[in-house]
Design a protein around this nucleic acid. Structure first.
Length: 692
DNA sequence: AGCACGCCGACT
DNA sequence: GTCGGCGTGCTC
C-alpha cells in the first residue's frame, strides 16, 4: 500500500512538517510531526491539505509549518500524499481558526470544517490560477488608483458615512454600526459599500442570514457593478445549498482572487479573502447567523474577531440593532453610522392599540375579529389608493401554544414551565395538556394568574387569517407568503399580502399599509429575546411601508403604552437596543456577561461545572457563577442523549473579560474526561441563543 | 475515536 | 489450564 521507504528520502531542507490531523477530537487537537519526502518538498507548505497515516489509518491533515527537526522520540512517518498543492489555509485563517476554537471550546479541526469546504479536484481544474500580482504591495495599488470611485450620493443621508469611507480608502480598519433609514434600500447601500471597499487586491465580504437576502444583495451588486468598473463575474455567491463542486469552485474563486465581492450565508464569514476590504454582517439578530455545528460560533462574533485579526474594516448592520452591537457601539469599538434626522420624513404613521380608545377597546373585548376598526380603515384606504397592504401574522408553532381564555397568560407546565399544548386524547376521551418541553401531562390546569380553566389557541395561522380577510374585503386579491411559499412577482397594486415575519415580499413602490397582528403572541413567548425578535419583525415590516406623506400607515396590535410599542411609534430603533442592553446588564445576561451552557447527562454536566468552579477558585482568582440546572431548550435536543437520563443544562456566568480563561478551563475538563473515557461528552455553547 | 496492551472470571 | 472482560495509554 505505502510506497516502499527505499523510494523515499527526507527533504534536504526542513525535512519535518508539523501537521494538524482533522479528527474532530479535542484530545487529539495537537500538531504531529511527519517526514517530508524530497519529491514533495515544494508542495508541503503551510496551509496545504495532506493525507497522513495516523494510528494506522489515513486521515486528512493541514500543514502548519516546516521545521528542521522533531521532538518526537520515535521514527517519523512520511506524509502519505499531498491532497493538492493549493494553499487553502491562509496565515490569517490559521490565526482566526485558533482564536475561534479557543474561545468556543472546540477542536480546531471542527472549526476548519466550518471554514474550508471539502476539496473537489474537478473544481480545482476549472478555476483559473491566481493572478500573479502586478505589483507586490497592495498599498502601491491603492495609491495608483487616482480615479477610485467615491461613495455614491445615496449615502449622503448618513453624515458619518463620508468620513468612514475616506478612512477606509486610506487603509484604516474602521468599524461601524449601521441602521438604515426607513424605506432605505439597504441591499443597494451595502452593495455600494462592498464595491467601494474592493479596490486593489482587497475583496469584500457580505454575510446575510438566508438565501432570500443573498438573492436581494446579489441583484443589487449586479446593478451597481458597472458604476464601480466591475463585471458580474466579480461577484460570487457562497451559500449552503450549493453542491460540493459548485461550492468549492466558488470558494476557490475567492481564494485565487477572482471574486471581488462575496455575498453569502453564515459560512461566508470564513470566505478566504486574502485581504478583506470590508466585512459586512447584515441582520445579526437573525438566528440563522448562529452556527448550528460545533463549536457553534455566531457569524457576527467571527466577523468581529476577523476584523481585529486582519485589520479589516467592519460594518454591522441590520433593520434593528442587537444588544450585542449596541455593546460594541457603547464601548466605542464600532461607532454608529446614523441617518440624518430628515430621514424621519420617510416614516409611515404608526399606531398601536390603546385600551383607552373606546372604539378599539370594544373591538378587542368583542373578540370575534382580530382586526380593530383602525386597522380595517388603514387597509381599506391603502387599497383604495391602489397600494398593496401587508398583513403580518406569526408563524404557526412559533409561539406558546395555549393561553388563558380570560387573561391570555401563556399556559405553562407546572413542572418545568415549558409551553403547554393539546396532547393526545386520554383513555376517558378528554383532551389532556402536554408540556412541549418535558412531555408531562396536565389534566387539571388552571391559570396561575386568574384561576380560569378555559384556554384558547395561541395563534391563528396565516391560512385562517387569509380566510377571515377574504370575508372582510370581498373582491380583494389576497396572496400568501411564508418561509416556504414565496411570491413569484413583487406585490403591485391593491392586494392583501398575508405573510409570516421575515418572508415579506418587497413591493417596488412600498406597501400602503402594514398590519402587525397577534403581537401579544410574539411578546408572550418564554424567551429572553422575545421582545427583541418581535421588534425586529415589526421594524422589518414597517420599513416596507411608504411614507406617511404618501399615505403610509402601520397598525401594531401591541398595547401602545408598552416600551416596545413606544419605540416603534417613535421609531427609536437604536435607542431600543441600548435600553435592552441596559436590561441585560441588570440581569447579568449576554452581552453584558458571558454565559457558557453545558448540556448533557446530569452527572457529566455537574462534573464539568464542578471542575470549572474549582479551577476558577484555584487559578482564575474568581469563582464563576453556576446557574441551574435549567431545562435544555426543546429546540436544541442533545444528539447523543442517554435515553435513561434527562438532559440538563448548567450555565456558567463569567465577566466578559474572563472568557478565554474559562474557555481554556472548560477545554481542559473536556480533554481530561475524553482521554479517561470518564462519562459521556457534554455540549458546550458560548452565549447560546436560547438560554432555557 | 480506534486500537493496542494488560491483568482477573467462566469455560471449550 | 485458556478466552475474554473493558481499564489505561498512545497515536508523529
Amino acid at each position: 500500500m505505502a510506497k516502499p521507504s527505499s523510494t523515499r528520502a527526507p527533504a534536504s531542507d526542513k525535512p519535518v512538517a508539523r501537521v494538524l490531523p482533522l479528527l474532530g477530537l479535542p484530545q487529539l487537537d495537537r500538531l504531529f510531526d511527519y517526514r517530508v519526502d524530497e519529491k514533495d518538498t515544494e508542495s508541503v507548505q503551510p496551509g496545504v491539505r495532506v493525507r497522513v497515516r495516523f494510528a494506522g489509518r489515513l486521515v486528512d491533515a493541514f500543514v502548519y509549518e516546516r521545521t528542521d527537526s522533531s521532538d518526537h522520540p520515535r521514527e517519523l512517518h512520511y506524509i502519505d500524499r499531498i491532497v493538492s498543492d493549493e494553499v487553502v489555509v491562509t496565515p490569517e485563517m490559521f490565526a482566526l481558526v485558533d482564536r475561534v476554537a479557543a474561545r468556543w471550546v472546540g477542536a480546531r479541526s471542527d472549526v476548519f470544517r466550518l471554514a474550508i469546504p471539502p476539496r473537489h479536484a474537478t473544481a480545482e481544474r476549472s478555476v483559473a490560477p491566481a493572478e500573479t500580482a502586478t505589483s507586490d504591495g497592495e498599498e502601491a495599488q491603492d495609491e495608483g488608483q487616482p480615479d477610485r470611485p467615491s461613495l455614491p450620493e445615496s449615502w449622503s443621508g448618513y453624515p458619518r458615512a463620508a468620513s468612514f469611507a475616506s478612512a477606509m480608502a486610506s487603509g484604516k480598519p474602521v468599524r461601524g454600526a449601521w441602521t438604515p433609514a426607513p424605506g432605505e434600500d439597504w441591499a443597494a447601500r451595502l452593495a455600494e459599500l462592498a464595491f467601494f471597499a474592493a479596490t486593489g487586491d482587497r475583496q469584500s465580504i457580505i454575510v446575510v442570514p438566508d438565501q432570500r437576502d443573498v438573492d436581494v444583495v446579489s441583484s443589487r451588486l449586479k446593478d451597481a457593478a458597472g458604476d464601480f468598473g466591475r463585471a458580474p463575474g466579480d461577484i460570487v455567491e457562497l451559500t449552503a445549498s450549493l453542491g460540493p463542486q459548485a461550492r468549492y469552485t466558488r470558494w476557490l474563486k475567492v481564494l485565487r482572487g477572482h471574486a471581488k465581492v462575496v455575498v453569502g450565508t453564515r459560512s461566508a464569514v470564513w470566505a478566504p479573502a486574502r485581504h478583506p476590504g470590508i466585512i459586512i454582517v447584515w441582520d445579526d439578530g437573525d438566528d440563522s447567523l448562529s452556527e448550528p455545528r460545533a463549536p457553534y460560533p455566531h457569524a457576527r462574533e467571527v466577523a468581529t474577531l476577523r476584523s481585529s485579526l486582519a485589520h479589516a474594516p467592519l460594518v454591522l448592520a441590520g433593520p434593528i440593532r442587537t444588544p450585542e452591537v449596541a455593546a460594541l457601539v457603547e464601548a466605542g469599538w464600532a461607532p454608529e453610522i446614523t441617518a440624518a434626522p430628515e430621514s424621519r420624513r420617510r416614516l409611515p404613521r404608526i399606531v398601536a392599540v390603546t385600551n383607552a380608545d373606546p372604539v378599539q377597546a370594544r373591538d378587542i373585548a368583542g373578540g370575534h375579529t382580530r382586526l380593530p376598526t383602525v386597522a380595517m380603515t388603514m387597509a381599506r384606504q391603502a387599497l383604495d389608493r391602489g397600494q398593496p397592504v401587508l398583513v403580518q401574522v406569526p408563524r404557526r408553532g412559533y409561539i406558546p401554544r395555549l393561553l388563558c381564555q380570560k387573561c391570555r397568560t401563556p399556559a405553562r407546565c407546572r413542572r418545568c414551565h415549558g409551553p403547554l399544548a393539546i396532547g393526545e386524547a386520554n383513555t376517558d376521551g378528554a383532551g389532556a395538556l402536554v408540556c412541549g418541553w418535558c412531555g408531562v401531562h396536565d389534566v387539571a390546569y388552571s391559570c396561575p394568574e386568574c384561576g380560569s380553566r378555559r384556554l384558547r389557541a395561541g395563534v391563528v395561522g396565516a391560512s385562517r387569517t387569509a380566510e377571515e380577510l377574504g370575508r372582510m374585503f370581498p373582491g380583494t386579491r389576497i396572496v400568501r407568503a411564508s418561509g416556504s411559499e414565496t411570491l413569484s412577482d413583487a406585490p403591485e397594486g391593491p392586494m392583501l399580502v398575508v405573510s409570516t415575519p421575515g418572508a415579506e415580499p418587497t413591493p417596488e413602490h412600498g406597501y400602503g399599509a402594514a398590519l402587525l397582528l397577534d403581537a401579544w403572541t410574539l411578546l408572550s413567548r418564554p424567551d429572553l429575546r422575545a421582545t427583541q425578535q418581535a421588534f425586529r419583525r415589526w421594524v422589518g415590516a414597517a420599513r416596507l411601508v411608504v411614507s406617511h406623506s404618501d399615505g403610509g400607515e402601520v397598525f401594531c396590535s401591541a398595547e401602545a403604552s408598552t416600551d416596545i410599542a413606544q419605540a416603534l411609534i417613535r421609531w427609536d430603533v437604536d435607542g431600543f437596543a441600548h435600553r435592552e442592553l441596559a436590561e441585560r446588564r441588570e440581569v447579568g445576561f449576554p452581552p453584558a456577561a458571558h454565559l457558557f451552557a453545558i448540556d448533557g447527562a446530569s452527572s457529566d454536566v455537574m462534573a464539568v461545572s464542578d471542575y470549572v468552579e474549582d479551577h476558577g477558585a484555584e487559578r482564575l482568582g474568581f469563582v464563576p457563577e453556576i446557574l441551574g440546572p435549567v431545562d435544555v431548550p426543546s429546540a436544541e435536543p442533545l444528539p447523543g442523549a442517554a435515553p435513561d437520563e434527562v438532559p440538563e443544562r448548567v450555565l456558567v456566568r463569567i465577566p466578559r473579560n474572563q472568557v478565554d480563561q474559562v474557555s481554556h478551563a472548560l477545554l481542559a475538563a473536556v480533554i481530561s474526561r475524553a482521554t479517561r473515557r470518564d462519562g459521556s461528552p457534554v455540549r458546550i455553547r458560548l452565549d447560546p441563543l436560547h438560554i432555557g
